[in-house]
């Protein structure tokens, strides 16, 4: 069961038969995790909430300034721009990436020769894609004299520097994210394997076409996994950082066209040491991600099919 499935079901499952409780053993086994939760995860979440209402530069003690940070957000045009860039990136690259992942998973499904080979080849970019090395490579490929333009040259097309044109820089990062479709593809493949072959056999006997089988069997039975991939990849895409950072040399340029939200947060917090504002920004990010995840869960009731 996926982590999302678990979360959805936690509320509804009924308690099992009463068993002996092992509170002391649980305390022992869970203490490292619990310490991590308090000190490294939940504690900082709460702390950044409080810091969001302060002015803090790491040197002087934090100074409470009420809603000033949030008022500043309303007038911070670079922030609005960063939000626009991030939304464009998320809502263009995730659907494309998942479309590739699902399409390839369907092509590779069941018993085809060389499946393991193709699966590995398509999966590899997901492991490399977040590295600095690949971002360096991207910077060359889409530069003025880069590989992409050399290839375009074969077809007589005169290219430009895609990286230094504000109109196209973000597209190169979207291409990079789509390039990493392998991870969701592997999840789709595993999901397709779980659909009993007999459903298709029965449908074929009844004379259902391939398209009909896809619509009436594959899509509904795969919908929980499509949902899982969608939620995860959206959350993931909102957090993209490395690629924009390396491709733009840490500036988010040209003309802020690759200013991802996380990059803006990094600049405010760790360049200007404006920790109060950075904390407020972090909370805004958390709220945005939570809202989109909630929308996803709410909408999922209309299209995700659970057969139990």
């Amino acid at each position: 069961m996926s982590s999302l499935g678990e979360l959805q079901r936690l509320g509804s499952s009924t308690a099992g038969p009463p068993r002996k409780r092992d509170n002391r053993a649980a305390f022992f086994f869970l203490s490292p995790w619990f310490a991590g939760l308090v000190l490294i995860t939940a504690g900082p979440v709460a702390a950044s909430f409080v810091l969001g209402f302060t002015d803090y530069n790491l040197i002087q003690p934090p100074e409470f300034n009420g809603l000033e940070n949030f008022q500043r957000m309303l007038h911070d045009e670079r922030l609005h721009h960063a939000l626009g860039v991030t939304f464009t990136y998320v809502f263009v690259s995730v659907p494309l990436q998942l479309a590739f992942a699902l399409g390839l998973a369907l092509l590779l499904d069941r018993g085809m020769r060389g499946l393991a080979f193709y699966r590995s080849v398509f999966y590899l970019p997901s492991l490399l894609g977040t590295s600095v090395a690949i971002a360096v490579l991207w910077r060359q490929i889409f530069g003025a004299d880069g590989l992409f333009n050399q290839v375009l040259g074969w077809f007589g097309v005169q290219g430009q520097s895609w990286i230094s044109d504000p109109g196209t820089a973000l597209s190169t990062l979207i291409v990079l994210n789509v390039w990493t479709f392998g991870a969701p593809m592997v999840i789709f493949l595993a999901g397709l394997r779980q659909i009993p072959v007999m459903y298709y056999e029965a449908a074929a006997v009844d004379g259902a076409s391939k398209a009909r089988q896809f619509r009436s069997i594959t899509l509904p039975l795969l919908s929980p996994i499509i949902f899982f991939n969608l939620v995860l990849q959206i959350i993931h895409a909102f957090q993209s950082f490395t690629q924009a950072f390396v491709v733009s040399g840490g500036t988010g340029g040209p003309s802020d066209s690759t200013m991802f939200y996380t990059l803006y947060l990094y600049q405010r917090g760790f360049h200007s040491f404006d920790m109060g504002y950075a904390s407020a920004l972090a909370w805004l990010l958390l709220v945005i991600i939570a809202i989109f995840t909630a929308i996803n869960f709410w909408a999922s009731k209309r299209w995700v099919f659970y057969d139990d």
Binding site: I40, T41, G43, P44, V45, A47, S48, L51, I235, F238, Q239, F241, T262, L265, G269, M275, A278, S279, A282, W283, L285, L286, I289
Partner: peptide, 8 residues
């Protein structure tokens, strides 16, 4: 997201 907790 790690960005939410990185400052504290």
């Amino acid at each position: 997201p790690i960005h939410v907790i990185i400052v504290p």
